[in-house]
């Protein structure tokens, strides 16, 4: 604090002069570097994926064209068509969403609109514990509980490795993601809207389903997309429960629902192939080894697409109440 005598010695211009604050500069610089590191890592991964993929695509055995069009993935036979792996990934993601969206959304509606504070304070942490369980445990759960259960229901048409079991367990895995993101979106709906609805004589269910959920829809949709990209990237459960053979198919010849889209057959996913190949005894600089980078790049682009989709949805959501 400047006292009267200080003011006499120092001119007002000097008192008002901008002070140097070296600590501030240092801290702001550190924060910037921390932010920059995550960007640098992403770029590094992209560089690695890109350059290794280039090795793969420039190999005379494969062409970019057949990689993106062929429906056969048999590295031993020199066929590198990514569609069987994409098919496996999409089947499992679809089944997972079929399980996770209704369950996650119902849980979110219950927690946000019905549960008392006490129930909510109990359920939310429990749901979040699910997130903390290692996925390998979920994988064993799929293999030793879900698959036998499905086989006892549907009989031996269900393969030992099958996408239904893997997909359902991946679904359980992403339920907490959907429920907590959807609940956040619904909790952000202003109470004045609920009051308006009750004031018009709406019941609690009408208010929840027809006012709160629509108002939170963009946030809910963004949550589903995030969960979807989590399902696309899930590795351990699918490696354990969906098997290690790509579902090679030929459109027109194979039965669409009997084989190509059948939930009872096994199928390798993109992540499953990468995990097995990377941890196997394939030597560096072989075409098999390089193929995992091409798949990784495809996967990266898929989840990048999903994430930017969710960002776009959230952006719309932000404008909703203004």
């Amino acid at each position: 604090m400047a006292t009267g005598s200080d003011i006499q010695d120092v001119s007002m211009e000097e008192q008002l002069e901008r002070k140097r604050r070296p600590l501030d500069t240092f801290i702001v610089g550190s924060l910037f570097i921390a932010g920059a590191i995550s960007i640098a890592i992403t770029l590094g991964i992209l560089w690695e994926l890109g350059s290794e993929s280039l090795l793969f695509f420039t190999d005379e055995v494969v062409s970019i064209g057949s990689f993106f069009t062929s429906t056969e993935w048999s590295p031993q036979a020199g066929s590198f068509g990514i569609w069987p792996l994409i098919l496996g990934t999409l089947l499992i993601t679809f089944i997972a969403l079929l399980v996770a969206v209704p369950v996650g959304l119902s849980a979110a509606i219950y927690l946000s609109e019905y549960a008392s504070a006490r129930v909510r304070n109990f359920f939310k942490p429990v749901l979040e514990i699910l997130v903390g369980i290692p996925t390998v445990v979920f994988g064993f759960f799929a293999l030793t509980f879900m698959t036998p259960l499905l086989r006892s229901i549907f009989g031996s048409t269900v393969g030992f490795f099958n996408v239904l079991s893997a997909g359902m367990v991946v679904g359980l895995l992403i339920v907490p993601l959907i429920s907590s993101l959807a609940e956040d979106a619904m909790a952000a709906v202003p109470n004045s809207l609920r009051q308006a609805s009750y004031g018009l004589g709406a019941s609690r269910l009408e208010t929840s389903l027809r006012v709160v959920v629509p108002a939170a829809l963009s946030g809910i949709a963004a949550g589903i997309v995030v969960a979807m990209s989590r399902a696309v990237g899930e590795t351990m459960v699918v490696t354990l429960a969906a098997g290690a053979s790509p579902r090679n198919f030929s459109l027109g010849e194979d039965s669409l629902f009997g084989y190509i889209l059948s939930p009872f057959e096994g199928a390798q996913t993109m992540t499953g192939y990468i995990a097995i190949t990377a941890s196997g005894d394939i030597s560096y600089d072989t075409i098999d080894y390089n193929s995992i980078f091409a798949i990784g790049l495809t996967l990266f682009l898929m989840t990048l697409g999903l994430n930017s989709l969710s960002r776009r949805i959230v952006k719309r959501f932000r404008q909703e109440y203004e």
Binding site: S192, G199, L200, G201
Partner: peptide
């Protein structure tokens, strides 16, 4: 719910639905 259908309410802050 039956009460509020017969006795409507307008609030302090305008609260139209989105």
């Amino acid at each position: 719910v039956e009460i509020r259908r017969r006795i409507g309410m307008v609030f302090q802050k305008p609260n139209p639905f989105p």
